[in-house]
Amino acid sequence: MIEDPYLGKYMTCVSARSTDKEILKKAQDGGIATTLMVYALEQGIIDGAIVAREGDLPWKPRPFVAMTREDILKAQRAKYNISPQISWLKEATRSFGLDKVGITGVCCQMQAVRKAQLYPINMRDVPGKIAFTVGLFCMVNFPYDSIQALVEDHANQSLSSVKKMEFGKGKFFVHTERGNVSTVPLKETHKYEQPGCHVCLDYVSNLADISTGSVGSPDGWSTVFVRTKKGNEVWLKAIADGMFETKPIEEVKPGLGLVMKLAKEKIDKNRKTLEERRNFGVNKALRDPYA
């Protein structure tokens, strides 16, 4: 077990890609999240999974309890605005009838899940039914109207014709159905960020069973951290069953160094924000959730 102040605890870190052609076609990166949930469902490790599916407006996600492969696939691709995933966590164990819940979500959502597991406040039956979680790397998230402004004003595209959005290489990329690619410099996006993200001290979903993101691996591949006993069990089984191609993280470009660099940047910056919040007003501090 490796313990790193920025990357959390993990057993292994690799670069990986799904071997499922159908999943890869529409995956954000290496299709890790979707493949793992489909695999867990088919193996009976979970009865269903909470995923972020398209909502009532283009690119507005909504949490969804998926109980089939098709439904899990409908949630492919990152939607860079808020999906209150964990609002379904209890209901999944109620009217949906799940005893083994799978959850995908960003770092803070993994934090909510683990807090509910250890301090289940009005979360009866939930702690024992959290079966498998896949966390995404996350630098920051946006309100819906921010994404609308970035895509429609800054990138001059219509949201409904966007095929994929992506952050990387200092830019925000907007790919349209017609193959058009617009970019927005990252620094223009900052003002639109969700304020709560500025005190977030996790970049790589430290509390998930398995966490994944694009950073560190080549295009079309994902970086994967296997973090818990449960995560390791599922990962080894999935590898044995040929669900993924993998490459040692040391052998890919840009590699773990970049992940580390970004994690450090994010967390140090947000620690500074927390520090600033301690002296925000005149002899008045803003709240510190970690205190």
């Binding site: 109980m67 209901e91 009217s95 949906f96 009838g97 799940l98």
Partner: peptide, 12 residues
């Protein structure tokens, strides 16, 4: 508020 899923029905 909500009906139950077929899975929930079977579980009950």
């Amino acid at each position: 508020y909500r009906n139950v899923s077929p899975r929930a029905k079977k579980k009950m």
